[in-house]
Design a binder for these strands. Structure first.
Lengths: 346, 346
DNA sequence: GTGAAAGCGCTAACAC
DNA sequence: GTGTTAGCGCTTTCAC
């Protein structure tokens, strides 16, 4: 077949061990003279020897590969459609992996019927689990996982802090948004969430909103929590009411876009009649009209950091601290402005 | 360590071969009774047996993994920045791979100093080479490649048709753009390209422009070819001239964006004074102002198709036809309109 | 300094 | 129907 270490050994008149030592830096216990080493290198070059990684992977039980998972339920995340959320995260993961000479793999079985296999059969040295899809199947899979794993977004406490986690400082991010609105004179502010979102970071964000508005004291008249159905249909009646908020913060990016378009259909001008802030500031926000003001998660850094923790984990160094929280920013664009003088009637 | 096929065999009181047959469907030459089979399955389940893919990969010399390469020179393509070109392509590749139960890997060594290794050491069953970076190093690497490989964009003739290729119908795409401009009454049309772009598809596109404008006959007064420096600085003097074209087609997406912003700085309104068409229509075009009219490559389909050819190649079926050409579309947005009545003086 | 032998977990070939 | 043997290419252990 192809030329092996033994072929090279034969040609150089040495044993396979020597070749392994010279060419791959393994077999550290033995010692080889420089002349022999050179002979081996020459032979290898002449024969066009190439190390068989599959054999090495097998033998060494490691692949230098990282798998990226996102659990079942909700379909595969896409790079090109909708928000650029996953694209940014992935760029960070790839950056981080490359820094450690690791490659990044997207594996179908992780998305299909038996993801458990890929999670434990050794094909990956470690895994990064990105998912806001918080269903029992996924939790079970994570719990059963037997290779190093880093969670993105998911609170580590969910799994008794068994895994390092990376997430953004939701509390501080929401605080930024509330402060911004308060400084623009808004006194009726709402946080919109969907019930399902509470399983993930939505819960933390909602709670952060409550805290932030309380802290704002009497700078705020009314801090509303709007629980939306999945199709957001409820927003319409809220916007029609004269009691409507003058500003809404949403738990994610796309509901903000939806709310803007519903508001505009109803005859409300964003931002003059209604300010809107989304969570997650990617290029997607730029493509909306008006451009969406949004809380910015440091996604690329989060991806990179996750890989950093994962590599430590792989090397058996218990990452400390196991939970990394990266600060958010606020990208002020066109969807927020000073509070309307009077609330127009629809 | 972990439980192997032999452990299961021992527990079930059979040989390893039987287990392999029952659990993995291998060793087709032997036959096993249903009772034994059930005993084996039970034992496996009880012991929590899991197949070691690393061993299988080694043994079978295949990994069910596809590597995505883009050659050296020009940095790693990003998912989140600039155009969504790579994101779209990648989505198609991932789609295609998943359909065939293959995973997709981005590997650092392919981008670093010794990409050759990853291209031949068996870690990938096949490779997809995406790159417009046409430098000798890359050509050499492709030529030396010893695993199935599919080229995206690159003309197959470059490598004596050794590899299947996938690209869009540049000729037809440019034709679409020229027709559109002609129908808007433009009579002075230019194609802008950079010298380096000619190494790749830019050459085909430039040639297609020449053909298309010739075919347009006397519907066109002047078909200009604008050779731009890498920083596009030359465009300024051309736009300042009263002989300037009323419409420009560019070899790619970003130069169109640049030309629009330069034109606007000079006081030309796009599209009223100057129509601009880019090549590659991704969400990026939507984020520009005015939104860029662009020739649309079916990127997702190209990625998926490339994987299809690759899988055939891996199975030893010589793909026929080896070169797939997918038709383009034209996404008409805001950067094109009817030809200006008179050319304003700057 | 270097060689020989054993084994990672799996599957194919062949024997019974 | 099922067991035995050998070997994929590499690295480690231990002997010399």
């Amino acid at each position: 077949m192809s030329v092996t270490i033994r072929d090279v050994a034969a040609k150089a008149g040495v044993s396979a061990t020597v070749v392994s030592r010279v060419l791959h830096g393994k077999a550290l216990t033995i010692r080889v003279s420089e002349t022999t080493a050179q002979r081996v290198r020459d032979a290898a070059r002449e024969m066009g020897y190439r190390k068989n990684v599959l054999a090495t992977n097998f033998r060494e039980r490691q692949t230098m590969m990282i798998g990226v998972l996102h659990g079942v339920g909700g379909g595969r995340p896409r790079f090109d459609a909708g928000s650029r959320y996953f694209a940014s995260l992935m760029d960070g993961i790839v950056d981080g992996a490359f820094e450690h000479d690791m490659s990044v793999t997207l594996c179908p079985k992780l998305l299909g019927q038996s993801p458990e296999d890929a999670m434990s059969d050794g094909r990956f040295d470690g895994l990064i689990w990105y998912s806001d899809i918080s269903i029992p199947e996924n939790h079970l899979m994570i719990e059963r996982c037997s290779v190093p794993l880093v969670l993105l977004h998911l609170p580590g406490t969910l799994f008794q802090n068994r895994f390092p986690t990376v997430c953004c400082d939701n509390q501080q991010g929401i605080g930024l948004a509330v402060d911004h609105l308060v400084s623009l004179g808004h006194r009726r502010i709402a946080f919109a969430y969907a019930p399902y979102s509470l399983a993930g970071e939505g819960f933390v964000r909602k709670r952060a909103f409550e805290v932030a508005t309380q802290n704002a004291g009497n700078a705020i008249d009314h801090a509303m929590l709007i629980e939306l159905s999945t199709d957001l249909s409820l927003i319409e009646s809220i916007l029609k009411s004269s009691e409507r908020p003058t500003a809404i913060i949403t738990w994610s990016e796309w509901p903000a876009a939806r709310i803007m378009s519903i508001a505009s259909r109803l005859g409300l001008k964003v931002p003059h009649d209604l300010s809107v802030i989304g969570f997650d500031s990617t290029v997607y926000c730029e493509s909306l009209s008006p451009k969406l003001t949004a809380i910015h998660q440091p996604l690329v850094n989060m991806g990179r950091k996750a890989v950093g923790l994962l590599v430590q984990s792989i090397h058996g160094e218990a990452p400390n601290p196991p939970d990394v929280i990266l600060p958010c920013g606020l990208d002020i664009r066109e969807s927020t402005t000073i509070a309307p003088k009077k609330v127009i009637k629809l």
